[in-house]
Design a protein around this nucleic acid. Structure first.
Lengths: 335, 335
DNA sequence: TATAATAGAGCAAACGTTTGCTCACAGAGG
DNA sequence: CCTCTGTGAGCAAACGTTTGCTCTATTATA
């Protein structure tokens, strides 16, 4: 790698002159200027980024750690973050592959590699770890409140969202509503369950089936549970689970929307693609990503030491929860 | 930000001693060692990354520019790249938001910010630009062959894949096959069209409808074209388009799989989720990502100046192309 | 007790830039 | 002929580390 010194030697000038030519500051005779530029091109001179950062401040970099970028939620989130960061910071993306140890390692790696801040997407790590990191660089987390300097929080009102979903089922006539919900390992699932229970009216029986977070899990649980008891509504903790349930129901001859109304959570693209289309609770994911980026930037710049943002979900009604008679949902299954 | 000098002053030792304590090399008395460590903790000392890079070589960083990370193809690809890079390099992700100017800007930004190599995911930029970048740092591109040092290529055999798809339709009895294909703006779409035409037998009539790359586009074109002419098979240039076509067909009362057999390309998760499930051409995306990362690393390390990898697609048969009256979600993989 | 070995600590150069300061020299103005 | 001004160029410090070398005590060895 050619350095300024090399160029300087070859053109028999001082390093400062080379620097001034290449950065376009200061006055240099046309003659030397040309020679230097030619040499630089010829040797594909690329200024050493780190050396530059020693004297100027370079573009700041921030890290984002997600469990799985191929999950639409996180890729949407990433889009939001990126779009807000635009030119004010470089985003370093890291996948933890849902491995908590790896997540910790990555966060440390980021911190030690010059990241000026970290966004931890839906982290499973212990509070202490987050706290530890935040002593060195600012952190943005999701769905958890720390009330500590250097840690900002982006939250969705999950309780309200779950309430919205369940209440919607009730309003369109369901009286026997099952909840396919996550285990209690994540705040999200705890909160969504809570919202579900809140919506259940007197005289109704809450019925919760602990479920994982993916389609297969929803499918398997539904296969077991839908055969034995009779439900007319199902609130699923996310769209993937809902799609699993939907598949199972179809296979079992249960007519979705007529016999069983299903609603998911997250409002992913998948909702539009299944048959019938899936009602869901919409999160303003990209908004949330942008807020996360803004919060981080503010902390990095020292303008704000911490802040909490709460976002409200909204109900999106689609084919899977059409009211009783309105059988207009003609997209019935083929064959 | 506290520096080593600060710590050194406070503990009345030299900078070297601080350095030795903090890096754990060299011998320092337990007494000073403790004092220094305490001070460092107290002031949340974080070593300056760039200064470190001046004397040691830091973790190398490589850039990845994609048009849209929320597209499953690119997030899968990212997963593959990340998984191969693991600890040998940091991945900087950049979204061009399908803006070609932004893509160029980002690539330059990456190069000037210390990235040791760039992977350009499905780039639209001019050859000259790629060439220009490659003079400074190695580049990996997709689907284009440059045969130039410092540029490696990852390719999918699109022609073969399209052939596979079309041929499958023919083998299960279609004789009037339409192709919903991309405009000629991308090599991918040109090649897939070529494969389609190759498969069409004598006596059959090729019929190509220029289409965009998303669901809406497929939907709209299908609405127009399926009403006028009669087709019994549709090969779509990707899954999104196929899903658009599938929706349109259903809405128009055309029974998918019975009246019209549809096959997509890319084998995204969407295929499993629609009804009927969608046959598609599978690309080993993660594999390709890993290969891209490996190729880049090799170039960075100077072991290889350039290399081209060709990957073979495979046919995945699902509900949308069942021969006659098929079992529901039968999924079989063929060569 | 003399000598060698070793532990503990500091000096200073190096990494590749940027930039304030200085300096030489030319032409202009008096 | 002398001073002033402006231009082109170099010197050297600074950025925050790492590390080879040096130096001084201290301890072990003979």
């Amino acid at each position: 790698m050619a350095t300024m010194r090399d160029i300087a030697k070859l053109s028999k000038v001082s390093v400062s002159t080379v620097s001034r030519v290449l950065s376009g500051k200061g006055r240099v005779s046309a003659e030397k200027r040309n020679e230097i530029i030619n040499l630089a091109n010829q040797f594909h001179y690329v200024p050493n980024y780190h050396a530059k950062c020693m004297t100027k401040k370079g573009v700041i970099t921030v890290g984002l750690v997600v469990p799985d970028i191929s999950n639409p939620f996180f890729s949407k989130l990433t889009m939001g973050i990126e779009s807000e960061l635009k030119d004010s910071a470089l985003l370093i993306l890291m996948n933890s592959f849902r491995d908590i140890e790896r997540e910790k390692k990555l966060s440390l790696l980021l911190r030690d590699n010059g990241a000026k801040g970290i966004i931890m997407g839906n982290s499973h790590v212990e509070d202490d770890f987050v706290f530890e990191i935040s002593k060195y660089i600012p952190v943005v987390v999701f769905d958890k409140e720390y009330n500590l300097p250097n840690i900002s929080t982006i939250k969705l009102d999950n309780i309200y969202g779950a309430y919205l979903a369940t209440n919607h089922l009730i309003e369109i006539g369901c009286s026997n509503i099952i909840h396919f919900g996550g285990f209690d390992d994540l705040d999200v699932s705890i909160q969504r369950k809570e919202g579900y229970k809140k919506a259940i009216r007197k005289g109704m029986q809450p019925y919760v089936v602990p479920t994982g977070y993916d389609e297969r899990s929803g499918y398997e649980k539904a296969k077991k549970v839908l055969s034995s008891k009779k439900f007319d509504g199902a609130f699923c903790m996310n769209d993937l689970v809902a799609i699993g349930v939907l598949k199972a129901a179809k296979e079992m001859g249960i007519r979705v929307s007529q016999d069983l109304k299903i609603i998911g959570f997250d409002d992913t693209e998948l909702c539009e693609v299944v048959t019938p289309t899936l009602s869901s609770i919409h999160q303003p994911i990209e908004e949330m990503g942008r807020a996360a980026a803004r919060a981080l930037l503010k902390m990095i710049e020292g303008e704000e030491s911490s802040r909490s943002y709460l976002f409200s979900p909204s109900l999106i009604v689609r084919g899977s929860t059409l009211p009783k008679r309105g059988d207009k949902d003609a997209k019935e299954e083929v064959g």
